[in-house]
């Protein structure tokens, strides 16, 4: 089902997002009161929350220009070296800007 963002649609989407997020914040505590979350479920949740980020990146890699790809490579490299997200992101964005300016 598609929602038009014109009119009140955007607000509705934000409210739905807020409710889904609230369900994740409350759900773990609520469920634990009845049955402990088991090992398999834990494994699934951990693997899924990383995979969704990978999936979101996919089109950026497929459709991205060389600036975009260089930015991602830089971010990964800096993150591996420095292990801090902010410098990794800033370097990635800077490389994208530079490569687009130079090419």
């Amino acid at each position: 089902m598609d929602i038009e963002t014109a009119g009140g649609g955007a607000l509705l989407v934000v409210l739905v997002m807020a409710l889904v997020t609230l369900a994740t914040r409350w759900g773990g505590v609520y469920v634990m009161a009845f049955v402990p979350i088991n090992y398999r479920v834990k494994q699934f949740i951990q693997a899924m929350s990383g995979s969704v980020l990978v999936a979101l990146l996919t089109p950026m890699v497929i459709n991205g220009d060389s600036g975009a790809r260089l930015a991602l490579i830089t971010t990964a490299g800096v993150m591996l070296l420095v292990k801090k997200p902010l410098p990794a992101i800033v370097s990635g964005v800077t490389v994208a800007a530079l490569s687009r300016y130079l090419v």
Partner: peptide
């Protein structure tokens, strides 16, 4: 236009780690 179901599943999948925090 925003695909509502995809939005719900995406937000849930990313935030599912909150479930583990609560637990």
């Amino acid at each position: 236009q925003i695909p509502l179901l995809t939005m719900i599943i995406t937000v849930f999948a990313i935030n599912a780690r909150h479930l583990l925090m609560g637990a």
